[in-house]
Design a protein around this nucleic acid. Sequence first.
DNA 1: AGCAAAGGGGACTAAAATGGTCCTATATGA
DNA 2: TCATATAGGACCATTTTAGTCCCCTTTGCT
Lengths: 158, 158
Amino acid sequence: MLKLSKLTDYAAVIMAHIARDPAKAQTASELAQCVNLPHPTVGKILKMLAKKGLLESRRGSQGGYVLARPASRISASDIIAAIEGPIGMTECSHADGDCELLDICGVADNWQRVSQAVRTLLDGVTLAHLAQTAPIKLPVQMPIQSVTLASGAEYGKG
Amino acid sequence: MLKLSKLTDYAAVIMAHIARDPAKAQTASELAQCVNLPHPTVGKILKMLAKKGLLESRRGSQGGYVLARPASRISASDIIAAIEGPIGMTECSHADGDCELLDICGVADNWQRVSQAVRTLLDGVTLAHLAQTAPIKLPVQMPIQSVTLASGAEYGKG
DNA sequence: AGCAAAGGGGACTAAAATGGTCCTATATGA
DNA sequence: TCATATAGGACCATTTTAGTCCCCTTTGCT
């Protein structure tokens, strides 16, 4: 289903929550309550986000989490990558493939391009967009449709 | 990692293989050999693809599978949806959400738009594209980047 | 100084999704 | 009528994911 994991989903919600009150350092407990999720789980997610440099943490009493940079400079792909690792549609989308099928499969290259396009799309969506209540507008239908038809031969036409 | 499942990955490879010789009905065994995967697995995938109307099957001797329509009219999202179900980034991306967090989460709407954009992107990639050996070109970076900035307020800027 | 409130890190368990196999039934052509 | 295919579904093993818990360190307050 090309779905985000639940944790990633939660992460987005949590980040959005923090982004809506960026001045205040918020604790794991507070956030857990606001978002209605168990404290340990929220804590785990916050740790991951902090480790990847999306949040800054303050320890000790009066501590909590703050955005490490403005919401407009944190992208959806940042958040996804923080929880799930690098974004790629297939196994061979990133690393130098240890995929034994590479010779046979014949689609690897093209999947990589598609992955790149998805990544770029997600780079363009910021936390600021996600956090705003008004729906964001992504009128990308036309440009993409036309653009993907760029290259040569078509098989099995007609 | 926003990854396709292995089965979906295989499905793409298999479909591409069929698309490269569209006239001939190919059996599960043949394809399994070509693609170097176990027969039962390939069989399972072919069944799924046929059930969703992407392939047509002929039973009995001399049987096998053929594309149900030209490769240029089968999209990447068709293939993905056939194996994994509807494409959506989050649980609530498609159905009328039974997500209890909907009130709290505040990002559902926006994720749905992002999902839609990804879906559109994948609609634009055809099996014909995937099957061709030459890499497809997806110069979508610019249009998307600029377009996602469409709407109003930005949080936490500066 | 000491205490309480926070996060850091990692081990562990339970549950769910995934991948893969197998069996029986049905259709088809020689 | 037999060999060759797919159709459909039950089944199991493995991996991934989600969630919990424990002990440690840091920090502010009294």
